[in-house]
């Protein structure tokens, strides 16, 4: 049986692996009945994410239908998406949209 990954929202460009996957292994994603297959590009662990589309450097990473960070490199379909190729862009902002003190990205 092919291994699967969970895509939570149709807008998401990543899915979370539900089992450890080896490089080249096939992964199935079932989004509300629409089944798609992907090839895992490298060994990737359970709970980690793979890209469902090409994501260019600087583009948003989308999970739960929301932006969770941005790509720091071009990411290929099936590639592992984690801290080595994603930047956390979150800043705690004041009422005027200015970052509160003590933060850097």
């Amino acid at each position: 049986m092919a291994k699967s990954a969970k895509q939570i929202n149709p807008k998401d460009n990543v899915a979370t692996l539900l089992a450890d996957c080896a490089s080249g292994e096939e992964v199935t994603v079932n989004m509300d009945g629409k089944v798609s297959n992907y090839a895992c590009l490298e060994d990737t662990s359970y709970g980690h994410k793979i890209a469902l589309v090409e994501i260019a450097k600087g583009e948003p990473i989308v999970k739960y239908g929301e932006t969770i960070g941005s790509a720091t490199k071009d990411i290929k379909v099936g590639e592992w998406v984690h801290i080595h190729n994603v930047r956390d862009d979150y800043l705690c902002l004041d009422k005027y949209g200015k970052p509160l003190p003590g933060q850097s990205l």
Partner: peptide, 13 residues
């Protein structure tokens, strides 16, 4: 991070 969470926003969501 070891479990696969990449950013604080992802964890919060």
């Amino acid at each position: 991070v070891a479990g696969g969470l990449t950013t604080l926003v992802e964890k919060a969501l």
